[in-house]
């Protein structure tokens, strides 16, 4: 385990994601879950809650004001107002795990949600794909970060356009998960639902979920302690 000094010196020249797998979760950073009012989101929220409970022992879900890791499960109807609040929190150092539930939506709902994501987070979502059409080839999402792992898809995926350096996971040739820094915090977008796999205790889903939560918490913890500024793709010392 590197010292904090070694870790931060390394971060000045190395992409953030390269460091994420080796970190222990910082449990001083509390998480909060923003479920939407539909069953898909509720099931996914249960999965994330279960994961947090296993990592932190108590669920570690805080009030909205203090948390620096925000999980938004099964998103299908995020409003501009809620999106703006999330964006503000990211600018202040929060990391957001944003899980799309659009695979089960109508085209009209997809279009509305894609517009919110593009305007608020600069995230370009592609139309959802039903995974069953591809089952002969693969039933799994391949994660590359924070750990390499295969995780079962959840019926449909919502691909995303992003820079190659921001790819977190792929389904066949489609990028379905990405991460980007926003302000002092950032966004981890999951275009394939992970929460139901967590709820079902799928071993690899739990591994990836734990790693994502640990990564989000650690970066948020560094920001919380102050004096560090996150720039796109890199963490570096703040000269303030």
């Amino acid at each position: 385990m590197p010292t904090r000094r070694e870790f931060l010196t390394g971060l000045a020249v190395t992409p953030l994601a390269a460091y994420l797998p080796v970190l222990e979760p910082d449990l001083t950073v509390r998480a909060e879950i923003w479920p939407e009012d539909h069953c898909l989101s509720a099931e996914s929220a249960l999965g994330f809650r279960q994961l947090l409970a296993s990592v932190a022992g108590d669920g570690s879900v805080s009030s909205r004001a203090s948390a620096s890791l925000i999980i938004v499960p099964g998103v299908r109807q995020l409003s501009f107002a809620s999106g703006a609040t999330l964006l503000e929190r990211m600018h202040l150092g929060a990391w957001v795990i944003f899980e799309s539930g659009l695979g089960f939506s109508t085209e009209a709902k997809y279009r509305r949600q894609a517009e919110v994501c593009e305007r608020i987070f600069d995230l370009k979502l592609l139309p959802p794909i039903k995974v069953t059409k591809h089952l002969a080839r693969t039933a799994y999402i391949e994660y590359f970060r924070p750990i390499g792992c295969l995780v079962r898809t959840f019926e449909a995926v919502t691909p995303v356009c992003c820079d190659r350096s921001e790819v977190v996971a792929k389904f066949a040739s489609y990028t379905v998960c990405t991460r980007k820094t926003i302000g002092c915090g950032g966004l981890i977008y999951l275009g394939s639902m992970l929460g139901p796999g967590l709820f079902a205790e799928e071993r690899e889903a739990v591994k990836v979920g734990s790693a994502l939560v640990a990564a989000g918490r650690n970066v948020a913890a560094i920001v919380q302690r102050g004096s560090f500024l996150i720039r796109p793709g890199l963490l570096s010392r703040d000269s303030r």
């Binding site: 089952l135 080839r137 799994y140």
Partner: peptide, 11 residues
Amino acid sequence: WPAIHQAMRKV
């Protein structure tokens, strides 16, 4: 068999 092969890879 492709699914079995992938599952072995997964675990």
